[in-house]
């Protein structure tokens, strides 16, 4: 079993990089050393009325400095509380959680939508072959300058102010992006479109899923997704997003 750690992480710095989107670097004792691209951490609130940890994907890992970066959207009271935390404050976290992206030496296409974009950054840095990144934003861009340094970036925005007008799949099709492997993270409708596209073009595809979680380590069975085959652990057609996932082979999971 891979090691997971519960720690008091120290905030190195936090900034708002787009409206409601925050970037936070955390100094950890053990998590950064053990972490891989595509894994996530559970972030606990200080306010006792909010019990459950917030699962937030890892955006970047700095193994030399024992630090991990998370980029998250304020979606409710918990993330709102976390967004007000400042340098040198402590945050309870657990991680690294989940399986992460498989790193393969193939021409890669990374597809991210909205707050699904951040976990692709560490992945792009870790991939050794030609890397193309398609990122779909509502309107405001974030992390785009950082992605440009690690691959060819193609952008889509809803109003077309930046890049292709439309969603991220419009950018993929408009630029006729081909690849031997696709990695994707984003909202379910986007993942469905990616799955369909990959099947049509016969490209190996890996999807990072999201689901409401409680324990984050595979015990409570809150965050399951439907699987094509019977799962060895659950003995039914359910896989745990926090444990067997969050990254799955596209054909392995049924998206609803």
């Amino acid at each position: 079993m891979e090691q997971k750690f519960r720690e008091k992480a120290v905030i190195i710095r936090q900034e708002e990089i787009a409206t409601g989107i925050f970037s936070m670097w955390l100094k950890t004792e053990k998590i950064a050393k053990a972490a891989r691209a595509g894994q996530f951490i559970a972030v606990y609130c200080n306010d006792g009325s909010r019990l459950l940890p917030r699962p937030i994907s890892i955006c970047e890992i700095d193994k030399d400095d024992d630090a991990v970066r998370i980029v998250y959207r304020v979606a409710g009271k918990g993330t709102d509380e976390i967004s007000f935390m400042r340098t040198s404050m402590q945050l309870d976290v657990m991680g690294p959680l989940g399986n992460g992206f498989p790193i393969k030496e193939k021409k890669a296409l990374l597809i991210g939508g909205g707050i699904g974009i951040p976990p692709l950054l560490q992945l792009a840095k870790d991939l050794k072959c030609e890397t193309q990144i398609a990122a779909g934003y509502k309107e405001q861009l974030f992390l785009n300058e950082e992605f440009k340094k690690v691959g060819n970036l193609y952008i889509a925005t809803e109003d077309g102010e930046h890049g292709t007008e439309g969603n991220v799949m419009d950018a993929v099709k408009r630029n006729d992006l081909d690849a031997e492997i696709i990695y994707a993270c984003g909202p379910t409708p986007m993942l469905k479109a990616v799955k369909e596209y990959a099947k049509e073009k016969n490209i190996e595809a890996w999807l990072s899923l999201e689901e409401k979680m409680a324990c984050g380590i595979g015990a409570c069975l809150s965050c399951v997704c439907k699987s094509k085959h019977k799962d060895a652990h659950t003995n039914v057609n359910n896989k745990r997003v926090c444990k067997e996932g969050p990254v799955f082979r596209a054909e392995e999971v049924e998206l609803s």
């Binding site: 459950l52 689901e211 409401k212 809150s222 399951v224």
Partner: peptide, 11 residues
């Protein structure tokens, strides 16, 4: 048993 559809929890 397969259990219920998701979301299965809410804070």
């Amino acid at each position: 048993w397969e259990g219920n559809p998701t979301p299965r929890i809410a804070e």
